[in-house]
Design a protein around this nucleic acid. Sequence first.
DNA 1: CTGAAAGCGCTTACAG
DNA 2: CTGAAAGCGCTTACAG
Lengths: 350, 350
Amino acid sequence: MATLKDIGAELGLSVATVSRALNGFPEVNSQTREKVRQTAERLGYRPNRVAQRLVTGRSGMVGMIVKLNPDMSSDQTFFEVVAGLSAALAARDTDLVLAVDQGTDPVAAYARMLERDILDGFILNAPVPDDPRVAFLQSRNIPFVMHGTTGEAADYPFFAIDNHAVSRDAVNLLAALGHRRIALLNGEQRYAFARDRAEGFRQAMPVPVPDHFMAGHPPSELAGYAQALTWLSGQQGPRPTAILCSATPQAAGVYRAAKDLSIRVPHDLSVVAHDDGFPQMPATGFAPPLTVTQAPFRDACEPLASALLGCIEERPARDLQATLRADLVLRNSTGPVPQDHKTPWPNSQS
Amino acid sequence: MATLKDIGAELGLSVATVSRALNGFPEVNSQTREKVRQTAERLGYRPNRVAQRLVTGRSGMVGMIVKLNPDMSSDQTFFEVVAGLSAALAARDTDLVLAVDQGTDPVAAYARMLERDILDGFILNAPVPDDPRVAFLQSRNIPFVMHGTTGEAADYPFFAIDNHAVSRDAVNLLAALGHRRIALLNGEQRYAFARDRAEGFRQAMPVPVPDHFMAGHPPSELAGYAQALTWLSGQQGPRPTAILCSATPQAAGVYRAAKDLSIRVPHDLSVVAHDDGFPQMPATGFAPPLTVTQAPFRDACEPLASALLGCIEERPARDLQATLRADLVLRNSTGPVPQDHKTPWPNSQS
DNA sequence: CTGAAAGCGCTTACAG
DNA sequence: CTGAAAGCGCTTACAG
């Protein structure tokens, strides 16, 4: 492997000048810079990351801990994380080190990784309200970025989507179509995103919502199927004319339940889902194609990588926060409310 | 962070002596060593990996590339890999860097990772016969270890199970119970392990096997269900009295197909599977509990890590090869052949 | 605009 | 048994 010294020797320059030329320092003569570049190219020079890291005091590695859920619902996000984030980080000369956590203590796995003392920072996913990892990492002064956010006054870097707006946009669409009996098939209650979607839903709804029309479930087809079956069979009272799902697999379950009960989408039932853009279950592959609020998970990778590196470079947290608005994409799973179901709750529960 | 210098200063020793004491060099005075150890402990000394790596010329990181299969069959292995291998490597001060490959060129992803020039070696999984990655990495002199093997005369480090024996043990068990019409629900043909299991199956079978009784499928419940339905419905001729599965999820599909057709396990049909020990589908959770050849995937992590580091240290490949015999675990999914099905193929195909 | 020098924290021949 | 010194490949004040 060629080194700065080799290049310098070829050109009769010091390693200092070669280093500056290659790193784009403004003071170097442009002809010198050009010669250095060409020689570096010819010699196949690649900077030695380890040496760079020793002198800059960084390891060039960041960590991410993935929780193993018993329902395996993290699987699909897992591949997206590895594919997208590792590419985004690699473009910044940073490596992603993954660890799997099977324990119950939310911070133990982080403490363990910290102990080896080789990480410049962390990427946190799946935040819960008042996430204990925030206080832990802040107390140790470890840089991190969160995918999602724990609440309004977050004083740490994050990249999130506006989950209140996700619910609001969907509710407004359905309300404009005349729907009043809208049910929320939410994500699992323990997560911050699900709490936000529930709040946004309640606030946007033009009528009060009975409690049993809001339920939290894992993002699986089966969970969506089971819950939709309960709602659509009408056991608990009048059935919803529209269902808002927190993930496309849940919507697939809703479609199946509707089919089983001979309920037509969108004629008898409108369905909207939030779409994280996982390739396994594209919203366009539904029959009829699914109306969604869309915010591809992959789009978060670049912003997360760049916010984390900003945090490591000690830029202030407020500059490293972003909340994205999901796109409302109208397809064919939503339609006007059925004529005979215009009142919110025809009678009280049967 | 405390450094060697800090410890030396406390004790009036040179960094050289401190380094030797901490690294277990035999020549240091045992009292000196003890004092150094205590001071290191008290100061919370942790060696700076980056500095160590600069001087030893290693990066302390190894790579693994995970292929994204459209059927997502790699999911379950993925978690085991990250959990087990990263722990085994961490115990050896080595980090695991993962990348996801979605392309078709089998070596392109490796070339890409190599280009960044920060890896000491690779772990290869899912070998195919005549795996092109072997020639590629050998030509560049990059250390690697393979999980599995491509054939007899492998001249590289690997850790594998004896897949011929997997089939042989299962066949011998079933043959001893009187079975002759045994079908092989194999893994996907393109993989080396499936080729070996097919060979072992053919060699161990006391009677010739019709081609349609050997089929390669992904390790999914659905694939097992569909194939078993075909065999057990008897469309293609007399149905098998025993089925050998390459993975427990396939066996779950076989159970379901049998149930659908009112075929009892093990009374009418014996089932044996190979069990990689994935926690999602424990063989003991089957009803009846599944007879398996058992070789937990996790048990491969330590040997793989140690073989890879051996390879990086340039130990000869022959010392870094191991083939493990899977355990045959008898449970309740296997029983004597039904009385009326003792002949291999009662009539020719109907 | 360029160079000489110090230093990041460690390891390891070479002396003594 | 211990120390002084060189060196891994880079970056970056400090001079000129």
